[in-house]
């Protein structure tokens, strides 16, 4: 049944996927969270409403989000070389993964912040809080469940992005599924990799949901 399977390869691919996922999710949150906060704050009627800044940021986010990820991988090669010294392997996949996922996460953060009751922000203003105190003391704590839920969605999107990272030789489970399972008709490899990906996605969703419930005080 599992004649074609080299478990050492599967192990390495799983590890590569996990490393790519952890690295790109970490940087995506690091970049996407502040970007989402700025997108929200500069929006119409918000604390630091600024139409030109909001329009420019929003446009940049939309441009990045509309480029298909496979294209992004290739277009990004010079920048990736500059950032991590190689455009190949796990390290080479992380910059395009981050550029693909950070704008997506930024939009999810913006949406989560919009869900915060404007009355609570007004209460903060009425107390004499500075915009900074409102962001860190009111907006982020109140939106935390939404921000975590957004990170879960982003992590799962990244799992499927990593499958395409095989194009730059990044390895990982998705790459294995395409090269062996699809191109060499090794159905058993396909099944095993897809099951592992499914377990990963299920695990991420479950952990994310648990965390959101724990954080929700409503």
């Amino acid at each position: 049944m599992f004649a074609n399977i080299n478990w050492a390869d599967i192990g390495q691919a799983t590890l590569d996927t996990l490393v790519m996922l952890a690295g790109s999710l970490g940087f995506s949150v690091l970049l996407g969270l502040p970007l989402g906060v700025v997108l929200f704050l500069t929006g119409r009627g918000r604390l630091l409403a600024n139409r030109p800044a909001h329009a420019a940021l929003s446009f940049a986010v939309n441009v990045l989000r509309s480029v298909p990820f496979v294209i992004l991988l290739i277009v990004m090669i010079p920048l990736t070389m500059l950032l991590v010294g190689t455009s190949l392997g796990v390290a080479g996949a992380i910059p395009p993964l981050v550029v693909g996922a950070a704008p997506f996460y930024a939009r999810l953060v913006e949406t989560a912040l919009r869900e915060v009751d404007p009355g609570v922000v007004e209460a903060g203003q009425a107390m004499g809080a500075t915009p900074r105190q409102i962001v860190f003391g009111v907006l982020l704590p109140e939106a935390l469940p939404g921000i975590v839920a957004g990170a879960t969605v982003t992590a799962i999107a990244l799992v499927s992005y990593t499958a395409m990272a095989g194009v730059v030789g990044a390895g990982g489970l998705g790459d294995l599924a395409i090269r062996f399972g699809y191109q060499r008709f090794q159905t058993d490899v396909m099944v095993v990799t897809v099951v592992l990906l499914l377990v990963l996605v299920q695990g991420l969703q479950w952990a994310g949901d648990r965390l959101v419930i724990k954080l929700s005080r409503r």
Partner: peptide, 21 residues
């Protein structure tokens, strides 16, 4: 203005409490 607001308290119809705290 922030200094003035610290000398003026305010309460609201829908309370506007921080639900996370």
């Amino acid at each position: 203005l922030r200094a003035l607001r610290r000398r003026v308290g305010m309460i609201f119809q829908h309370f506007n409490l921080l639900s996370s705290m």
